[in-house]
Amino acid sequence: MAKFVTLKLLRLIGVVFAVSALTFVMVAMLPADIAYDIAGQDATPAQIEAIRAELGLDQNVLVRYGHWLMSLAQGDMGRSFRSDEPVLDAIWSRLPVTIELLVLSQVFALLLAIPAGVYCAYRAGSRFDRVLGSTGFGMISVPTFVLAIVLIYLFALRLEWLPATGYEPFSEGVWANLRTFVLPSLSIALVEWVPLMRTLRSDMIATLKEDFISMAKAKGLPAWRILTRHALRPSSFTLITILGLQIGGLIGGALIIETIFALPGIGRLLINAIYARDYMIVQGCILFIAVGYVVINFVVDMLYVALDPRIRTAGAGG
């Protein structure tokens, strides 16, 4: 186990190193730099040059990356060029939002996908299965932002159940906090449950042909118990993989949802920083996203182990 963790940690450092260097160079290669953002539209070329010199943007990329790495090694992620906010503060304040959005959206997606996938597999080819299959197909082709607008129209404007936008932290109360996450999470979940449902359905169909399912049936257990106790776990390996990929994609990729619902998450921070070439923030975000990916990978691996005892003993033996 210790070896496993060390290996993961080494990989993490490698990934962070490579990803941070790559983003640094990529941001530097973008046309124009932060000076044009900072100076605004009412500046002279001379002033822009002055800002550039002040921020050290006239230095070579490698030198700048070196500086950044050195500061990072001392635990200093720097400050935003734009707002002067410490990068760590900026990320730290947005991390809970991103994590909550990720978790809730995937919980909603699973709440939809698992019963639907299980039932469709159990009644594969039935009317219900076909209707759900084409509903899923339809939903996945609706852009997230359209779904979001429809949900806002229904639940915020028509029914007035939930706020249209905004974010309340946990400190304002659990319900106040959850209310602000329902629509954004649903907007993501209503798209992302589809691939989850499909993989679960097809894996489940395969599992249901297994002998041990016949065995369970021969025991006289009711269908729901066979589906949930016997078939679900062995059918959920691909599901977990897809789930991991989706969460990974959402760490920095929930941008549209964060923008529409005005959630102060990492995605919005990152994209605004990219537009502004605020590379301190970009680097900080990328760092967290890379760490996030590795952590999710680790969690997924751990989940496999939890779900499949065969891996567990193999790991214990080695």
Binding site: I149, I152, T165, A262, P264
Partner: peptide, 17 residues
């Protein structure tokens, strides 16, 4: 409050947020 999307900002105004 910082509400970057103009359309949902309007929705928030209409819903009284």
């Amino acid at each position: 409050r910082f509400l970057p999307d103009q359309q949902t900002r309007l929705a928030s105004l209409q819903s009284g947020d």
